[in-house]
Design a protein around this nucleic acid. Structure first.
Lengths: 346, 346
DNA sequence: TTGAAAGCGGTACCAA
DNA sequence: TTGGTACCGCTTTCAA
């Protein structure tokens, strides 16, 4: 079979000529809503098929005044967290007839420009985490629907997130139940609202517990495995480690587990460790952690965007921003102490 | 600060009017390549800024005859594998000035239609794994550059993949070196060319080794953790398990580890287990496995597409399809026997 | 250096 | 039910 040469796509004019009708009729026949004789439609479809015709999306977007595409911006895609969110977003967007454009801000120079550029190509936009400044968000939200995911709300903009405080409390109570009293929190609350929420929630439990518990904050450089290993290692070497190490996420916790192992400490005997996210690796490391409905985050964002795009969006009585906090779930494993497979719902 | 109302974007005409020039001049001033007086440019830029002007991408695409966007199709995004590939792709595409559209075929009804639809929106397309039939690929490749990633090559179409046979051999030799003789391969070679390659490579080692080794094929339903757990569990219960279980990927292997643990078998004492992919979880499970340059797969695809799009693409002496096989690396851990941290490059 | 105008490939209104 | 045609918003000759 010979390799077909790259052919430039056929246009609606060629189809019209071939079918012996006007381009208006071709357009109608192809978008089967409008009145067209069965015979005419047949001829048009035949011509289109012969020419392997596919309408130009830019032309269509220009004429229709919509992109039929949504965007999603995320910091990264390593670790299942963002990937799951993106997946949930894509699934719903596709189902609602929109393509999905992605933008990873990872190690990009000018994030603001990139986000604005993306905005020019989509009907609506989801921003995951702290990927762009509030000013950028506000600027974009002025011209098209925006939904914030897992991020501090910006006035007038929709946002979905998962609960941190509530489950952090549940975690704290669980650990107090184990009898631990000296805690350390691994992570930088200033780095992300999620971390801040987790820290705050945990701290509030200790405060409420009649003061018989201490909590040290151990800031980390980032949220990855190496950062956890380093910070936990330092903490351990400094002597007199806490009873329990609350890590802002699973990667930090996995790093902490490594550090503990390297230092010859038994987990949870000498040191209890907990994480957040419930990565696959957490299950194999026996890590007590918190599971989040990540896919639902993305799905909700996509659904909301679709609604905003559909609706006329009344300009003056500015529509109230939607807010939603999805529930998370405490997953108890062995790293926090001896009781195998209890699971708390929150 | 009041919430700004959704405003329809300004057009080039409004900018032109405001700056007191023609739209042609605005266009030139904004794409700074063409000759425009400094004074004129200043006025145009000012007007554009005041109106918060951003050119319409569909209009631009239509006029320029290019989308300035590439697409990537993948089965899923769970597990780091695809995510990494997508990330590598996005990074390079962005750097080369293209936006990225994604399409997850996961549980979609009409994949072929979705892929064709995506093709209408991009200048070039990368297909990851067995996401669309060869006929669909050929059809799309006729009109625009396509690169296949981790998939059997289609005549006339570029493709990048990682090596399977070679490293599978290295793995086989390593295990023979451990003294194992009775092997089982977990996975369905017919499911994917990768699995087929790994199986073939491993088998060839045994064949070459003077026949003193046996290899049973244990087909699985899919490549996920549960499938591995089920298949390995069945195998173990059937009695007389092999010395070593070669799993087609890490998820299967992790499942097998669970099954072994549940059956009270010691790994690697009673049963050695190996995987493929080097997931994060593999490291915590002490799993011997094979690491692949996933990000490079995506990056290479993006780079090739860009080149194809740039070049005139001579139609008649049909340009030869590019092929590349990226090297993989054997990662030896504890699950295959007692020698802690040796690492083979392949 | 600038402006006028012809596309780019569709959609949709208005007549016929 | 169909055709003619005016847009959609931008790029890019061609002249001035």
């Amino acid at each position: 079979m010979p390799v077909k040469a790259l052919t430039k796509a056929a246009t609606i004019y060629q189809v019209a000529a071939r079918a012996g009708v006007s381009i208006a009729t071709v357009s109608r026949a192809l978008r089967d809503d409008t009145p067209v004789t069965e015979e005419t439609r047949r001829r048009v479809l035949a011509a289109a098929a012969e020419l392997d015709f596919a309408p130009s999306q830019p032309a269509r977007s220009l004429a229709e005044g919509r992109h039929a595409a949504n965007g999603i911006v995320f910091p990264d895609l390593v670790g299942p967290y963002y990937a799951e969110v993106v997946l949930g977003y894509e699934a719903v967007a596709a189902q609602l007839g929109s393509s999905v454009l992605i933008l990873a801000t990872r190690d990009r120079r000018d994030v603001a420009a990139a986000v604005r550029e993306l905005a020019r190509r989509v009907d609506g936009l989801a921003l995951l985490g702290r990927t762009a400044g509030n000013d950028v968000v506000a600027g974009i939200a002025a011209s098209r629907p925006v939904v914030l995911i897992a991020r501090d709300p910006v006035p007038g903009t929709d946002s979905v997130r998962t609960g941190n405080v509530h489950t952090a409390r549940a975690l704290g109570e669980h650990l107090l139940g184990h009898g631990y009293r000296r805690f350390a929190f691994l992570g930088e609350p200033d780095d992300s609202p999620d971390v801040a929420g987790r820290y705050a929630g945990f701290r509030s439990v200790l405060r409420a517990s009649a003061g018989d518990g201490s909590l040290a904050l151990v800031p980390t450089q980032g949220l990855d495995l190496e950062a956890g290993e380093r910070a936990a290692g330092d903490l351990i070497r400094r002597g007199r480690p806490p009873h329990a190490l609350i890590c802002a996420n699973d990667e930090l916790a996995l790093g902490a587990l490594r550090a503990a192992r390297d230092a010859g400490l038994d987990v949870p005997g000498d040191l209890a460790v907990t994480g957040w996210d419930d990565l696959l690796a957490a299950s194999f490391a026996g890590l007590t952690t918190v599971a989040q409905p990540m896919r639902q985050l993305g799905a909700t964002a996509a659904r909301w965007l679709n609604r905003r795009i559909q609706d006329p969006a009344p300009a003056d009585p500015a529509p109230a921003a939607r807010r939603r906090v999805l529930p998370t779930r405490l997953v108890v494993r062995s790293s926090c102490g001896p009781h195998p497979s209890e699971v708390h719902e929150t």
